[in-house]
Design a protein around this nucleic acid. Structure first.
Lengths: 250, 250
DNA sequence: CTAGTGCACTGGTCGGACCAGTAGGCTACG
DNA sequence: CGTAGCCTACTGGTCCGACCAGTGCACTAG
């Protein structure tokens, strides 16, 4: 007792130390997006490791979305700007492996989207408000144009809202979760007859939300948006899981 | 015109195809957590690729948190159960690279936590309610015991709430974002005198939230929890960013 | 001046080699 | 007979050297 606490030295692999150094350089800003890393053969000299080790390190960095390498490029690997791609990837596997139900995903969207709208109602600029109105108009026009155009306009609306919330984390998570939900739902598309009715209902809901945002009534807009999302997705969710969704309605 | 639309065949690297196959096997359930992959030398036979290629594929899978390999293990790499570790990792780099402010993170916590409490107030079991009460009791006892014990009890409370919400995604995201916030805040700890006052205030807030949950009043509990989190973290947030946080208060 | 051709790089893949570590069977000792 | 210790046959981690198919650039021939 009382002696020095020795902690087990976890064997740190060579490639991990390479990863750490490059990662540190990127996150500290010493390496900016667009800049190039030295070539693999140059890196193996700088780090005093073999090319295999350098390559394994680059694979890890690439898997984390920090760099990209292209065969034949006279320059080395390119440092990438941050993209939510890896966040998206890990959340997608989360959805598959951790067995996230559609109900949980939709519920999460209800939470995020309504919060974004609550914030947007107070913080939005006039330009953003105009964008929202334009997106709703596009939805109206897209009823005849087809499913794709309607979906795009819908996404555009929620993108503006997320941006107007002023919270990048909400913006990114909204984007990621939405694409997962849309992918799941796309597999079991509603019948053609329902679809038009669903679109018209959705447009009406969006108009109401937009009006509330324009009026600056955040809580109302948030409540309406939760209701809208529930009505839009409830049909895809098994009946016995809908009660959890309704728990978010007022 | 009108001829077949040829799409560019993106050169798919050998190691990527290895990754895809193993990933598919894991996500489809053909390979369960705890099971072992064949050894690298065996894999290079099965895939007809060199060991370098196999190893690069394994590095990617490891970076995604799907497998783990240990030197000297007579078995191959181990298939891991899902853990939010990679989600945590990518969100942490998001926080660093995308320049997430503490205000945004706290705001996100306010949204998630209050939603979890709203749901928990309606869906919690009696056992979970007892756990929450126990956590608050532990917080009371920990005021004298020191910062660490208090923090643990605090975390335990919010963990139970997140679990009681019945939404695994909320649970995981809450956990991830909280640890990031705590890490950021730990760097600028409040003065010792403030601390005790802050702890007592926090306990009072938790008691109020707990009472609301016990009464089944979700909206009240949610409102109280947002207020509680604001009061607890506002001191760490630059004054000019606090208004965005206050936008979530009623 | 421009169009075309090499050339000198790049990353991707392969094969072989060695090392340190582990586990489990085997042996030799108690 | 039981067990402690060694031995071996693996494992993953690292290194080396080689070849290939791409890419960009400079140089050259028209």
């Amino acid at each position: 007792m009382g002696g020095p606490r020795f902690e087990p030295v976890r064997a740190v692999r060579a490639y991990e130390r390479v990863v750490e150094q490059v990662e540190e350089a990127i996150e500290s800003g010493a390496l900016s997006p667009g800049e190039r890393l030295p070539s693999e053969r140059e890196l193996m000299v700088q780090f005093s490791v073999s090319r295999s080790t350098v390559r394994e390190a680059l694979r890890v960095l690439q898997a984390r979305g920090l760099v990209r390498s292209r065969p034949g490029d006279p320059n080395g690997a390119e440092v990438l700007p941050f993209s939510p791609a890896t966040l998206h990837k890990s959340m997608t596997t989360l959805a598959r492996v951790a067995e996230l139900s559609l109900a949980e995903l939709v519920q999460f969207r209800m939470v995020l989207d309504s919060s974004a709208i609550l914030l947007a109602a107070r913080l939005r600029t006039d330009a953003e408000l105009a964008e929202m109105a334009a997106a709703v108009a596009a939805m109206r026009e897209a009823v005849e144009a087809g499913q794709d155009a309607f979906g795009e306009a819908d996404v555009a609306f929620h993108d503006v809202v997320a941006r107007a919330s002023g919270n990048k984390l909400i913006q990114i998570c909204t984007d990621v979760v939405r694409s997962i939900v849309l992918k799941l739902v796309a597999e079991k598309l509603a019948d053609a007859d329902d679809r038009v009715a669903l679109m018209r209902q959705s447009i009406r809901h969006h108009e109401e939300v937009l009006a509330a945002v324009r009026a600056g009534d955040g809580p109302l807009a948030a409540r309406l948006s939760r209701k809208a999302m529930y009505d839009y997705y409830a049909g895809y969710v098994p009946a016995d899981e809908r009660s959890a969704l309704r728990a978010l309605l007022d």
